[in-house]
Design a protein around this nucleic acid. Structure first.
Lengths: 333, 333
DNA sequence: CTGTTAGCGCTTTCAG
DNA sequence: CTGAAAGCGCTAACAG
């Protein structure tokens, strides 16, 4: 593999000049440029990005930490994020944190050592304090799905409370008053926010949370099934179910069907996230849509701005979910 | 950020010695090691992996090219792959090729420039010739979902023909004789293999492919819907439908339901891939399971073997799909 | 077991 | 506009 040195020899110029035409920094006369480019071509020269990184103290890489690589949610986000970063000529290094504080810290450590120019963190386990401190003694960091007041500019977040509110309110407006709720794990702040929104909507209708109609799941489909069994076993009647995400809603619907119940005949169901499979379910699942690709893209833009000095990028930090009505909900008779 | 040089000064040893304790290459006396480690700790030293890479001519990174980052399929694969690579202390650089030859080539180029120690390629567009040639003049390469005879040892593939055969045979054995087929795009070899398996099973029962009951889709849900409409419009009766993947099966089921048809009452359906949402569908979708995580893991192991000299790893190159029976198929009356 | 000495391939002042 | 020269932080012979 040819080096810059060989190119400079063949072109009859100095190393520095070759470097200049590569980075088109400062001016190079058209003639010289031509000579150099010809030499590059002849040698099939490819710059060594590692050497470039070392010399320029820039790795042109962005570290990304997400809870999981699988599932319908993160892939979509990563896809948009990768597009944007890649289009700027850099690459992403992906790691999974598995929503576990220890693993998340390890991943952050891992990415730090890789000398990423910036980090995009979608974490659940590590506390705000750590993140604030870390971000102040490190390369630029962007937080996804998290709103840290001191770092609001580096946060891309969704109004989960509003989402929970919208979900519940839509059901209340359809006349439902006996509402069941299957939550995500309550140690995750998005879960608690969604639940808070639920309570707010209930409150507006003079209702409160019925603990017997509340189940804490894990965001996994299986916990939705368990939740449904639990709710049915309680014997407390309900005409609508709100779920913390679509997977659990799918599980709950499956378990209900196993008992011979029909949706929305026996009760209405609404999920959260609006992942693609909501439209494959029967009945199609109503959900609260999160603009997840858009959020991924924005995280990428924050990085472009903070780590690579790009200006004039339109950046939105806070997102609002939207309600998507489908066949799984109907008004009460 | 402290450098190796500062550590060596503080510890009162040479650069080389510090380097040795980091890589625990060759022997270092316990005392020296201790001194060095103390110095490292005191300075909060973190090796600069970029410099390491340049000097050692190893980036400790593995480039991964997949068709897409989103969707239920690739995420699962990447997840297993990342686990394995990460556990060995290296990282992955992910790019998306979008099943497009030009983009795939660009991605390969991109990863090559990044000086990855190895590449894992899941590509559709580029021809075998190119891949063979490329792999001979590059770092180790592993091919996913592709069987290139000359490079069989570097291929991790699935017997798609067998999968197609199994899907169709299971239906034939249930008494179905009028079979419809919604294929993936026929320029993708996995699609054609699956179709070939379908034909083989038909042949065994003295049947042939009925062109009127065959539709070429795109592997996307929407094309499954279109396929179903097309099949119904043809007026040719069928009692079972085989789909090239689960997304299209989901779309076909949705379109059928819109017409008031029931499954498996009006016809049986089977998909391919056995992605998670197959169990969320109504009725639950039978499918041909691909051990996709396992394949991802094996690709990672190939890399560990070929690029990092790891020995004694159990590696399997060729995988067989399995039939998963669920409620979407039933015997014909 | 430890130190010395060259680089790895490129960027970046600083002169000219 | 171009060249010379000094590193970036680390590894890897080669001596000792």
């Amino acid at each position: 593999m040819a080096t810059i040195y060989e190119v400079s020899e063949l072109a009859g110029v100095s190393l520095a000049t070759v470097s200049r035409v590569m980075n088109d920094s400062s001016k190079v006369s058209p003639k010289t440029r031509e000579k150099v480019e010809a030499a590059m071509k002849e040698l099939g020269y490819r710059p060594n990005l590692i050497a470039q990184s070392l010399a320029s103290n820039r790795s042109n890489s962005v570290g990304v930490l997400v809870p999981e690589l699988h599932g319908p949610f993160f892939g979509a986000m990563l896809s948009a994020l990768e597009d944007e970063i890649r289009a700027s000529g850099r690459h992403i290094i992906i790691t999974a944190g598995h929503s576990d504080e220890t693993k998340e810290r390890e991943s952050i450590e891992f990415l730090s050592k890789r000398r990423c120019d910036a980090l995009i963190l979608y974490v659940y386990g590590v506390p705000d304090d750590f993140l604030v401190e870390f971000s102040e003694s490190s390369v630029p960091v962007v937080f996804l799905n998290r709103l840290i007041p001191k770092k609001a500019n580096q946060c891309i977040s969704l109004d989960n409370e509003l989402g929970g509110y919208m979900a519940t309110k839509s059901l209340l407006e359809l006349g439902h008053r006996e509402l069941a709720y299957i939550s995500g794990p309550l140690w995750k702040r998005d879960s608690t926010k969604r639940l808070m929104g639920h309570k707010r909507a209930l409150g507006e209708f003079g209702l409160g949370l019925n603990e017997q109609l509340m189940f804490e799941g894990t965001y996994e489909e299986s916990s939705g099934r368990r939740g449904m069994k639990h709710l049915l076993a309680s014997g407390v009647p309900f005409s609508a179910l709100i779920c913390g995400n679509d997977e659990m809603a799918a599980g709950a619907m499956g378990a209900a069907r196993d008992r011979g119940l029909t949706i929305p005949g026996d009760f209405s169901v609404i999920g959260f996230d609006n992942v693609p499979f909501t439209r494959y379910l029967y009945p199609e699942l109503s959900s609260i849509d999160c603009p997840i690709e858009e959020m991924g893209r924005m995280a990428a833009r924050c990085v472009l701005r903070d780590a690579y000095g790009r200006e004039g990028l339109e950046i939105k930090n806070r997102f609002e979910p939207t309600l998507v009505r489908r066949a799984s909900i109907s008004s009460i008779q």
